[in-house]
């Protein structure tokens, strides 16, 4: 790409396919609203008027087949863990998971005597970004989403296929 830069007019941009795909995929991840408990209220507040989530390209979708990112917000219990796995498998590739709050990260305040609490959602689905807090502030959730965008940008989807 180095030799082709600045050789054309101003409105012609040259970039690698990987970078273009990364930019397109990372800047509009639609999230699967999987609000379970208290963190769901903070997720709703993040999507509402003051900390608008739509300005970074995220729209709430209620069906897993239309979503890219699953934000697991709240405590996952044993009864619910089987459904979490089922819904994760229904999402289409490429898919990512954000574990929001300390309950989804590692069981939260219920880790010691909670017989029915799943100690971290990463026991059933693979997690990409952990956002700590109880509940995390909307700014913390937005930072987690931006980190996820960096992670998606850094993927090389085409390079992997060729090699």
């Amino acid at each position: 790409m180095g030799i082709l830069e600045n050789k054309f007019q101003d409105n012609v941009v040259v970039a690698s396919m990987d970078k273009l795909l990364g930019w397109a995929r990372s800047t509009s991840p639609w999230f699967f609203q999987f609000g379970l408990a208290c963190c769901a209220i903070e997720m709703m507040a993040t999507a509402a008027s003051r900390y608008d989530l739509m300005r970074i390209g995220m729209i709430p979708r209620s069906s897993p087949r239309q979503a890219d990112v699953m934000i697991v917000a709240g405590t996952v219990t044993m009864k619910m863990s089987l459904r979490v796995k089922k819904l994760y498998e229904q999402m289409a590739n490429p898919k990512y998971v954000i574990a929001m709050g300390s309950c989804a990260t590692s069981g939260g305040p219920y880790w010691q005597y909670g017989y029915h609490v799943l100690k971290g959602v990463d026991l059933v689905v693979p997690v990409d970004v952990y956002v700590p807090g109880c509940p995390p502030r909307p700014e913390a959730l937005i930072e987690g989403l931006l980190k996820l965008q960096e992670k998606i940008q850094a993927e090389r989807p085409l390079t992997k296929k060729i090699a």
């Binding site: 044993m78 590692s106 069981g107 880790w111 010691q112 017989y115 799943l118 100690k119 026991l123």
Partner: peptide, 9 residues
């Protein structure tokens, strides 16, 4: 429970 470990490891 269904293959998932219940207590905290």
């Amino acid at each position: 429970y269904h293959g998932i470990i219940v207590p905290k490891v």
